[in-house]
Amino acid sequence: MAFRDLIRERFFPHIWCPGCGHGTVLNSLLHVVDKMGLDPTSMCMVSGIGCSARISGYVNFHTMHTMHGRALPCATGIKLAKPQLNMIVPMGDGDAMAIGGNHFIHACRRNIDMTAIVLNNRIYGMTGGQYSPLSGRGVLATTAPYRSIDDDFDAVALAQGAGATFVARTTAFHVKELSKILTKAIQHKGFSVVEVMVQCPTYFGRKNKMGGAVQLLEYYRDNTAPLGSKKLEENQNLIPRGIFVERERPEYCEEYQNVIALAEGKE
């Protein structure tokens, strides 16, 4: 099976702008599922609203396109009913950290076995370039014409603090690293958070005069460094990439099964 067999070809070419990083993440995810030999019928993808959420329409898995920020609660429901499914929840930065912020931290806390991918393009693309909680101070956006005065969330630190058992960050430039991290995140038993810094040439790049897709990818290449690298040690301003947390904790579906067994008097 090739990665092309995992998509709904009738919906291509996709809706995303030329050079959009979401396409690269979809591409990488399909390569990972193909390489891992996962059965498409064992895969489930639940998404919310936004550019990133359109991913669920393109993959030939079980999919559900739900409400803004509410992908994780819907995914939690499905996972509890069918724990055998490999659950993938792609979310945008606004979807995950603003509208769905509360759901995000509680999903981390519960440690339910699914992979949450935060596609961080630092802007609300679909609605016209408003700043998001991950835009950061000094960013230009439709709603911040004199630059944003809001500090951004560190999605990795937030997930770590909320108790996620697998937390990683990479970028759409580092495609091989992205594939490796996604593979590990899917294999991990528990709640996995992967923040992927992606480019939005249409709104973020244009508004901030940072150029097109190529220039934004070069920015991610030049301004990030792997955890534990000399490059990162020498320059604290670089954004760290890699796997921040990988640990084990009781998984929610299994714990829930124990409760059912207890209630039925089997234990």
Partner: peptide
């Protein structure tokens, strides 16, 4: 195969 992985349009094999 780098272009296949990079392509945001899934247009390259």
């Amino acid at each position: 195969g780098m272009c296949e992985l990079y392509c945001p349009d899934l247009a390259i094999v």
